[in-house]
């Protein structure tokens, strides 16, 4: 594999992860991660839409007039999302009911427009496809990690299989209800970003402003 294509695929996994580095797509990361199976399907759905959407838009990028480029991008993304939604409804009916509106909301996921506008509009078809694939996988990686913690400690199961028998079913594990609710995810993602930035210090942004402690003599003047 060429270094460039490898970078397009590998970088978004940790170094330029859409969720933890670019801080995009948090809404759906909160909504679909209460258990592993919906999180997995959501990751696959976003990866497909992102990879094929990037490739399709990259292929016609020289034809798209500047003034309607966002409309064209949204039309293609929305069509792909509907196709993915129909496929889920046909072959994963129960889980698609759990995902409810969130598959449709992939259209508004900032990762998509972000990658397509900044990358696919300026690069070739193959590298755009790989960039989409890589970012989708990076998003999926975070989703799966969060869903793992939430489902295991929030309900004591993984993919619906009981790992820690909960007290409600006569076991010993007392499930952590907060992880099932949205605030738990904020804390998890926060901890995750902290951990990654402690490990990869180059991800820490320069502070845009610093709180300046005013001395009383300064305030008077």
């Amino acid at each position: 594999m060429k270094a460039e294509t490898k970078a397009a695929l590998i970088d978004p996994l940790i170094d330029e992860n859409p969720v933890t580095f670019q801080i995009l797509g948090l809404c759906s990361a909160l909504a679909v991660t209460t258990s592993m199976l919906p999180a997995l399907l959501m990751s696959l759905a976003v990866t497909c839409v992102l990879a094929f959407g990037s490739a399709m838009i990259s292929a016609i990028r020289r034809q798209i007039p500047d003034n309607i480029r966002i409309v064209v991008q949204m039309t293609i993304i929305a069509s792909l999302v509907i196709v993915v939604d129909l496929i889920l409804k046909a072959y994963a009916f129960e889980t698609s009911k759990q995902l409810s509106v969130f598959v449709g909301l992939i259209v508004t996921n900032c990762i998509l427009l972000g990658r397509i506008e900044t990358f696919a509009m300026k690069n070739g078809v193959m590298s755009s496809f790989l960039d989409g694939l890589g970012n989708g996988l990076g998003y999926g990686l975070v989703l799966m990690a969060i869903a793992f913690v939430r489902e295991l400690f929030g309900s004591g199961t993984l993919f619906g299989v009981t790992i820690l028998p909960s007290v409600y079913d006569g076991g010993w594990y007392y499930p952590n209800g907060m992880l099932v609710l949205s605030p738990g995810v904020f804390i998890l993602i926060g901890l995750m970003i902290w951990a990654i930035r402690s490990w990869r210090a180059d991800q820490v942004e320069q502070a845009e402003f610093r709180i300046h402690h005013v001395h009383r003599t300064e305030a008077a003047s």
């Binding site: 798209i64 500047d66 039309t75 293609i76 129909l86």
Partner: peptide, 25 residues
């Protein structure tokens, strides 16, 4: 490239292809 004719043609072709894709699926 950014003229009105080109804009209309691209918009129509993209919409048509997407409509066929969605309806077909």
């Amino acid at each position: 490239k950014d003229g009105p004719v080109r804009t209309m043609v691209v918009a129509l072709v993209v919409s048509f292809c997407c409509a066929v894709l969605v309806a077909g699926t």
